[in-house]
Design a protein around this nucleic acid. Sequence first.
DNA 1: GTCTATACCCAGATAGAC
DNA 2: GTCTATCTGGGTATAGAC
Lengths: 204, 204
Amino acid sequence: MTKNKILEVSIDLFSKYGYDGVSIRQIAGEVGIRESSIYNHYPNKQAILNSILNYYVEEMVSDEIPLQQADLNLDRGFDYFYNAGCDAFLSKLEEDRMMKITRLMFIESYHNDEVRNFLKEHIIDAPVAGWIELFNLMKSKGMIQKDCDARQLSESFFYYGMFLLYEHFIVNYPEDDEKFLNDFLEKTKNHAKMIFNSVRVQVV
Amino acid sequence: MTKNKILEVSIDLFSKYGYDGVSIRQIAGEVGIRESSIYNHYPNKQAILNSILNYYVEEMVSDEIPLQQADLNLDRGFDYFYNAGCDAFLSKLEEDRMMKITRLMFIESYHNDEVRNFLKEHIIDAPVAGWIELFNLMKSKGMIQKDCDARQLSESFFYYGMFLLYEHFIVNYPEDDEKFLNDFLEKTKNHAKMIFNSVRVQVV
DNA sequence: GTCTATACCCAGATAGAC
DNA sequence: GTCTATCTGGGTATAGAC
């Protein structure tokens, strides 16, 4: 199906060169048709981008990280939640397409308000809010120190992984995706251990 | 001097809309001359960008953070180094111009190799290498635990601040610069405390 | 659904008068 | 050193034949 091929090619090129860096001609050339034929499938260039972003948003927002039943599983320890959250996120990035669009999101975030808002709300603020809730719960159960700042703790914990993403998708691009995903898990696990170690209540 | 005004206007517009998002016409209009007159001062558009980047690089690389005399000042404690490094960096950002160009660097990093390499080498890798050295020294002096990973420690420490920068310049743009700089100091201080607390040798 | 042909626009850049 | 006028090229998008 031509429409689908246009989408795949667009994802590939946009993620490499950014939206403005790719022309309709270029997409058509890669697909193997003339540029005018593109308009039989999409009304304009922007519609292709919207289609890509909508796909990404739907994939990402479906089954958000389940910190809801936090109080039920709290005895499983911090690692349980860390692994659950990390798995949920990383499993989405296992698709090649999702990796590409993630880079596109980083690229376009500076001048596309929809992208920026999605990044802020769903990729940053919502997870941080979830971790704050969890850390507050852990405070109330005496698992971590009562005087620590749950927001600071969440950000200190979460922003490290966020910068690893930025580093991979922008600063070190292109580098091997699979290797990155493995390193990411390892590194954030170590980081989480360090952060948690700093505030946990010592059991002597 | 017209040449200078062209530079200032370009910094302002590029930092808002990115290099590709600004035309020579737009710059000329803001300066108050015709677009052809631009070429009496700069051979082409790219030369304006290069001029901006060279200025930034020079400013940033001059007096890099002095971790060299680390062993001499080690008894002043971790805070001394943290404050020294942070001050050196933040003092550069106090100029409005440097803030604008920093955003430009983040914007252009995905498709400008020079920008990306500078970001990687001087803004990320060099500081991390400095912190690794310091943490190794602190290990050898018994100030922090011998079995901790100096690189992981450095990244866990440093990447938090890096993401705060990304968040300010891209995700939350535009927000008040001065407020950000104050928050940055406060937040990274708390973060550093947390990280350091996790690995310091307990003095009982 | 794809093609050719083309309209239209705005970009970067140059020539040459003043 | 600035101007008017212009060139050239690439971009998005449309019309209409097949």
